[in-house]
Each structure stands twice: as structure tokens, then as C-alpha cells.
Nucleic acid binder design. Structure first.
Lengths: 223, 223
DNA sequence: TTAGTGTTTTTTGTATTCAAAATACATTAT
DNA sequence: ATAATGTATTTTGAATACAAAAAACACTAA
């Protein structure tokens, strides 16, 4: 194999992205061991950048290293999912606050179009489309309100909750008909440039999701 | 050199810890380039685990990699310090809430002894001791209230604020005589097992610090 | 002097190598 | 058959090797 060594600046970031997608797309299943030599060959790189990428993922908690045994795709329990949503509650609350402080008029216009494809009077059937819009919305807010540190944390917590959809097929904990109103309320508060309300509403949105998750867990335990 | 390779399970975690301390203790100064070969030799390891450790630190934002140029100790501006304290506000707020929910009686007793060495009627002169107690307190709360993900994020934001002392020699933004009452209020709320108050008071504590920091920045700009 | 150019040295990113550990496999004894 | 033991294979963690890029240095020409 040719020595790519000095030609590329960042082979491990590339590998990192690929692995992340493999986990998100469930090509690598939770609990599974990651075969280093095999994947390295598939990607046409040596184990060096692959291991670097795996260590990134380890810090992002998407992967776990058992010393002398290798890397395994991480498995999250429902309890851990609750912790992750609690984190998102405070982090995205902060993001919403900051966004309300610094959003531009043009951005407010763009934001107004989010969720407009969905009719409030009719039951939302297309979960996939709604889930996608949900992500787009949270990403949009993040882009405006979060600086790099917060952004990188949010990115990984988001990926975690979306890639480990324990609840239903599209990673939604609650029904769109319930959450769309909360989303619109957040949008409205940000448009008003009301940081306090934006943070409060975003947190309430997550708190409800956490409550739903907790209920699910209790139901499981009863069963 | 002896091949430690297969004897140790985790050389890079060890190197990571050492580097972290070198940054905290200002043996490596912000902006400085990290000489890989030199440090590797000092620690008696090869560049492999050192680079792995540097990549950990990169994700923690303590270090920054300029492609093809090497790793540099990260430099934070006052504005970025504000962002970091905003993060701590919401994260430690969450931690305080969780701690109030699950603290044991024994832990409450231990917690009651925090800051007891300081006399409320007398001006606190020993900044170093106070700073140490401050850290101990935040670490104590974290141990109880934060699960792994939150814990690891808190650890790095803490290190950043304490290692980049822009304000005064011990990394304190405000005077102990001011903050000790806030600390005691948080302790009291947690002892009462009042999650809401604990979170609220912890956040208020940080909000005041952020306000002080912001004032400093404005004063700088005027000068 | 100073700017520009060529040359040497150092450092970087990645591949390769290697000993030790873990695992898989086979063989024998029960 | 099943368990216990020994042997071969694979995989891991880390050192080393090496080509290309960057930095340091030296020399010449304005």
C-alpha cells in the first residue's frame, strides 16, 4: 500500500466520520466488537488512524474500549438515555437563550419556515419527515447560539440520542402532534428575542420528553 | 528502551493525565507548541501514546492541533471564558439538582464540613486555601450528582477555568467574602434535599461570576 | 543590511513491525 | 460427549521506520 502519510493532513477525522455514520446507520450494532484489521483494510488505511478515530469515539461515548480486548460499540440503557436527555435539557436551554440574544432578522425569517410543512389541524403521519425536521431545527439553533465547545458537546449528545432509538423507529420519544406546539413556542420566543422565555420553553420541552421516557421505564419494570 | 507495549493496558491514559497536570501547573504555557519527541523522551514512551493523549486533550479543547504543524496549548480569550462559565452554570446547576435528589445522610454530614474552616465574620485572606476548598466542593457535588458523561465534561470545563487564571493568582473571579455565602446557600438547599432550589442557587452563583467577568471585559475595553 | 533562494535538519502523519496477551483450535484424559 | 490442557493463530498496545512537509540555516545577489 502506498504511503498516504504525509499527503493528507487528517486521515483520522475522515475515518472518524465514517465510523460515526456506520454506528448511526446501524452497520455496527451496539455491543459488537469492532474488527480493526478488517475495517482498516476496508477503508484502505492502516490501523493507526483507525485507532485514533476509535479513541475519539470513545471520548464521545459511542464506543468503549476494553483494555487488551478491543473496542466495542456502546450500549445505552434507558436510564442512561434519561441522563443524556437531562444533559440536552440544560445544554439546549443555554443554546436557545444565546440564540435569542444574537439571532439576526434574516435568521428569524428562515426559522419561521421550520415545521411549516406540517398542518396543525391534521395528525402528523410522516414520522420520518418530522424527525428530520426536528433535527434540522435543533441543528439550526445550535449553529447560531452555540460556540465551538458547546457545539461539539451538543453534537455528540445529539448523535447519541438519535442513533440509539430505543423508543420507536424514528427516535422520537413522543408524538409529533404533542411536540410540534412546543417547537413552535420556542421559535416564537426566539423570534421575540426573549432569551429567558426561549431557555425556559426549550427546557420544558425536554423535561416533558424526560418524563415520557421515565414513564416508559416504569412501564417496562412493571411488565 | 524497554518495550512497555504489552505490559501496560493503558499508557495513553497515563500520559493524558500527566499532560493535563502540566497544563494546569503551567509547565506548558498557553500558546506554546508541544515538542513531541522531547516530551516523549522525558516520559520514557514513544510518540504513539503521546499523540493519543494529545488527541484526547484536543477533544477536551485544552490543546489545539494545527495540521502538519503540531499541537499547541490552547489559549482562551476572556470572551471564551465567559462561554465556559455559562456552560458551567447549566452543567453544575444540573449536577446540584441531581445531587439534591440522591445524596445520602452520611454525605450531607460530610458536606456540612465544607468551608467550615473559614470565619464568616473575618475577611478571608488565604485565597489559595479558599480556591482549593472551592474546587473540592464542586468536585464533591460532581461525584455524587453527575454520571459519567456529565462528569467528564465538567472535569474539563473546570480545568479550563482553573488553569487559565485570567483574573487573579488563584483563579478566583470574585472575592471569597462574596462567594462563600452562595456556596453555603447551595449546601443548605442540597441538605434540605430541595433539587429545584439547589439548581437555582448554583446557577445564580455562576450568573454572578459571569456578570463580574463581563464587567471586567468591559473595563478592559474602555482602557 | 536585506531579500531571496537553495540546502540541511527537524518534525509530522502514517505505515510497519514486534512482543505479549487473548482467543481459537486441537488433543488427550476422564 | 465433556473437561482439561497444550499449541497455533489472531489481535492488541506500543515502538520503530520512513516519506513528505515545515522550519532552520546558510549563502548569494541586490
Amino acid at each position: 500500500m502506498r504511503n498516504l502519510g504525509a499527503e493528507h493532513a487528517n486521515l483520522d477525522q475522515k475515518v472518524h466520520q465514517i465510523l460515526k455514520h456506520m454506528i448511526m446507520d446501524r452497520q455496527l450494532l451496539p455491543g459488537e466488537k469492532i474488527p480493526q484489521e478488517k475495517i482498516a483494510q476496508e477503508l484502505g488505511v492502516s490501523r493507526t488512524p483507525l485507532i485514533a478515530a476509535l479513541k475519539y469515539l470513545e471520548q464521545e461515548k459511542l464506543v468503549e474500549s476494553k483494555p487488551r480486548r478491543g473496542f466495542y460499540v456502546r450500549l445505552f440503557s434507558k436510564e442512561e438515555m434519561v441522563s443524556i436527555f437531562e444533559l440536552r435539557e440544560v445544554l439546549e436551554g443555554l443554546t436557545a437563550r444565546r440564540t435569542a440574544q444574537k439571532i439576526t432578522d434574516a435568521e428569524i425569517e428562515t426559522m419561521a419556515r421550520f415545521f411549516s410543512q406540517f398542518d396543525l389541524d391534521r395528525e402528523i403521519m410522516d414520522f420520518k419527515a418530522y424527525s428530520r425536521e426536528d433535527r434540522r431545527f435543533h441543528t439550526f439553533i445550535t449553529e447560531i447560539g452555540a460556540k465551538e465547545f458547546l457545539k461539539s458537546i451538543l453534537e455528540t449528545t445529539n448523535i447519541i440520542s438519535f442513533s440509539y432509538q430505543l423508543i420507536n423507529s424514528e427516535g422520537l420519544v413522543r408524538s409529533p402532534d404533542e411536540t410540534i406546539h412546543e417547537h413552535l413556542a420556542v421559535i416564537e420566543a426566539i423570534s421575540r428575542r426573549d432569551p429567558k422565555a426561549a431557555e425556559e420553553l426549550m427546557r420544558r420541552h425536554f423535561k416533558k420528553t424526560i418524563a415520557a421516557l421515565t414513564r416508559d421505564i416504569k412501564a417496562d419494570e412493571a411488565a
